[in-house]
Amino acid sequence: MNTLRNAVNRTLLALAGAALLAGGGWLALTPDGVAGRLPGWWPAPDPEAGTVLLDRDGLVGLRVHGWWIPAVVAGAACMLLLCLAWLLAQFRGGGRRLPLAGPSLTLRSRALADAVARRAEATEGVERAQVHLRAGKKRSRARVRVLLEPGTEPGPVLARLTSGPLDEARASLAPHPLTTHLRLGVRSTRERRAR
């Protein structure tokens, strides 16, 4: 799983859990319930009617205001869209399953991209590498960005990358072709001074 998405998921779950725990603890530890701790503008529950925080009369009173219904609808729509976006993000990061040469063997495109990036970073003269792999049914495309170490000649590094990690990726996907777009870069002097 993507480390950024994993961190966001854990943070959101921790915040939701902390909010629920704090709210539950507050409700459980207050001896007279929450009626005495509500803000002044909140309608207080009727002691004879029970402990309902917002009864039918209070809801009718809120509906009189012109902002109430649009605010509730907009808030619910925003929450729904955020939850749907979060749900869709969970399925997006793993990548497609790529068929391999053997019978019933598959490989996730994200796993192959990570492996190619690690192999590229292990190549002499490479400081950092990023690989994005778009898998198709008949043809796959890899976009490789490589940051060279300062003072490294790009020609030999290009030859090592082509005959090393990129050829291994092509062999992994055979008989399906892999088109590769390789971009080499060098960190600028200004970036080196900043670190």
Rank of each mutant, 00 (worst) to 15 (best):
M1T: 15
T3M: 12
A7Q: 08
N9W: 13
A14L: 12
A16C: 05
G17V: 00
G17R: 00
G24P: 00
G24Q: 03
A35F: 09
L38Q: 13
G40R: 15
A44D: 11
A44L: 14
D46Y: 13
V52W: 12
L53T: 15
R56C: 00
L62S: 11
R63K: 06
H65P: 00
W67H: 14
A71K: 09
A74E: 06
A77M: 14
M79L: 15
M79N: 06
L82P: 01
C83E: 05
A85Y: 07
Q90D: 14
F91V: 10
R92D: 01
R96N: 02
L98G: 00
P99C: 10
P99M: 04
A101N: 13
A101D: 14
A101I: 05
P103H: 13
R108Y: 11
S109Q: 03
S109Y: 05
L112N: 01
R118A: 13
R119S: 15
A122C: 02
T123L: 00
R128Q: 13
L133C: 03
R134M: 05
V157C: 08
V157M: 06
L158V: 13
T162C: 02
S163W: 03
S163Q: 13
G164N: 04
G164Y: 03
G164E: 01
P165L: 05
L166R: 02
D167F: 06
A169K: 06
A171T: 15
P175T: 06
T179M: 10
R183M: 08
R183F: 06
L184W: 06
V186P: 00
E191S: 04
A194H: 10
A194G: 02
R195H: 11
